[in-house]
Design a protein around this nucleic acid. Sequence first.
DNA 1: CCAACGATGGTCT
DNA 2: GACCATCGTTGGC
Length: 190
Amino acid sequence: MPLGKKFFSQSTVDLARALLGKYLVYGDLRGKIVETEAYLYHDDPGCHASRGMTPRNAPMFGPAGHTYVYFIYGMYHCLNVVSGKTGEGEAVLIRALEPIEGLALMQKRRKTAKAKNLCSGPGKLCQAFGITRKHNNLNLLEGSPLNGGLHIANSREKPEIVCTTRIGLSAGQDLPLRFYIKDNTFVSVF
DNA sequence: CCAACGATGGTCT
DNA sequence: GACCATCGTTGGC
């Protein structure tokens, strides 16, 4: 079942935790979300929105449940789920998936057969799912005709969650805003 | 094994 | 012109 407005309306930290165990679905591709990071509007210098709205980060200030996809290091994309109040730039970065369906296409795009190397990082999972800037600012909510089929699907899993500091930042490194499913081997960094 | 580094281009100052 | 929410490769042990 696609998740709707109520699910995306919880606080950004709660959403980052609630997304663990849910599914990212796009066409015939499906992956279980196993690692996320929260980016907050207040007191978080690591957040793209921390110095105000710019053309790039504008989707973060929009409604919860939209996507925020950005291009990084000249060759990779990262997928976020916008969260928090409209007008305050917050989002959850999807950092890793456990591949569930559509492995053959993921393997072709990632140029590797190893399941653990298909979606175990924010750039990797966008490559495996074919997510680019064209998928920026799309509505993930159920019933949206313009979302291209990209959505988050529910599950009953209640995973055991580990919390650590976030990966790869040069500001806000000390905040405990990274979450992953305990003992899941598809996480990007242990 | 793992630390270091280069690729590569959009974004903001 | 500097920075960057990354990744694959390289070269040392």
